[in-house]
Design a protein around this nucleic acid. Structure first.
Lengths: 128, 128
DNA sequence: GCGATTTTGACAACCATTTTCATTTCGCGG
DNA sequence: CCGCGAAATGAAAATGGTTGTCAAAATCGC
């Protein structure tokens, strides 16, 4: 684990929601770190490859990253307003995906699931 | 519904799996149509906005499109090898997403789900 | 300390997608 | 059919997230 990867991982550990490479880079630079954008991308990729970080694609096509709170398989419930993110287990989804795959003769079935909503904090402030 | 949008929609209706804008453009041009890449993108966007076409983002971040076989809410089971796609209903997923959202105090809950696997055709040929 | 290997950073390159703007097409009413 | 305003189009330029390149720096293991 090199110092740059550690710095990148640290930012994600201290963040609550998903962060883009551009975000992480901007934050590190404004904190005075000497790090290149390419290095940020590569660090994020290495962290993701090592299972330390989750990646998802936004509607815009950009990759965003979040430090894993748990090693177990999980999904994300993300506030569409503030980005607040909760890791959730999805046993019902796993079962459904397996069943649907089997029903149509598919093997090696994998799935992606993301859930979006408005969190209680944002619902409350939107009303005031 | 303009002639360009109709042409684009036609390509998707005659395709089985998801197609990228670049694919659709290449096919239209090689069939002799005089159409611009930008127009393809805009036609796809209009079709998606009108609910006639599903969009999803690939792992590469590229958008791909598929004509909707049904107006009802559905998900996709996609072969990772050949692109063969089946539309599937997911009542268990809907219930789970609602429950998970409610459990964490979220409102206006939406979800994205895609399922990937190797279809029976590809499993069979991979073995030969 | 040393050599081999890996990582880094700045810059260039890539590529899907969107913007710009002049032109064409569309849809409607007369 | 014609005229008109609005919408759509196409080509070229621009955008911006991401990756490749390559020399230099850092790391690793002995």
């Amino acid at each position: 684990m090199t110092s740059r990867r550690e710095a990148v991982h640290d930012i994600l550990r201290k963040s609550e929601g998903f962060r883009s490479a551009q975000d992480v880079y901007a934050q590190l630079r404004s904190a005075g770190a000497k790090i290149g954008l390419t290095t940020v991308y590569r660090a994020l990729q290495a962290l993701a490859d090592g299972g330390k970080v989750d990646v998802l694609r936004t509607d815009d096509g950009e990759s965003v990253y979040r430090a894993c709170a748990t090693d177990t398989h999980h999904h994300h419930l993300v506030c569409r307003k503030c980005g607040h993110t909760v890791e959730v287990a999805g046993p019902a989804v796993e079962r459904w995906a397996e069943a649907v795959g089997a029903e149509h003769g598919f093997t090696e079935v994998t799935h992606t699931v993301e859930v979006f909503g408005t969190c209680s904090g944002c619902s409350t402030s939107a009303r005031s």
